[in-house]
Amino acid sequence: MRRRHLPHDIHPRRDTGQYNARLGLWLTLASLVMFLAALYSAYAMLRYNTDNWAAFRVTLSPGWGLVGLVFQCAIAMLMPWGWRQACDGRFWMAWSGLGICLLLGLLALGNFSRQMYGLAQDGLAPARHNFYALFHLFTGVQMLFIGIGMFFCVVYLLSPGNKQYRLRNRMECLGIYLHFVAAAGGLHFTLFYVL
């Protein structure tokens, strides 16, 4: 029994309403949510145990953090548009959406690098205080999340067998993932620039 595709690799299963990759992605995101929850609980416990937490601040303008967040939200919002284009058969438009996402992602990574570098320049390294250690850690994790998204953008852009159903499913999954990344970015900004 040779099959070209596994069952429900492309089209949703009738009783679950999911195709395999989308369900797999949701499960992966559940795991990543737990990963972030562990980091946030570490943040809460360390902050609760520190008397003078409020005395520590990121010395950068909140504007830079906000710019980074806007980039991430823009990426997330571009993906549903690209998915719509793929559904309608306008593949070049969808691919151009992926290209713009890649560009914005690189800008977001550059912005985060600038924040970390700026803090290190001011002598606010992780060894100075747990506040700065957490800032560096959360920023690094956020950059990793964006980097993973950008990696898949590149793979999908270069993928030779980008047929309609593939591109449609891929853009939908990447869009879900990048929405998660943008939400994590919002929390990251709130923790370090607002609270």
């Binding site: 559940a30 795991s31 990543l32 737990m34 990963f35 562990a38 980091l39 570490a42 994790v141």
Partner: peptide
């Protein structure tokens, strides 16, 4: 799926 992320975060 849901418990190992805790050790991954702690390891980090």
């Amino acid at each position: 799926l849901l418990s190992f992320p805790s050790l991954a975060a702690a390891s980090l």
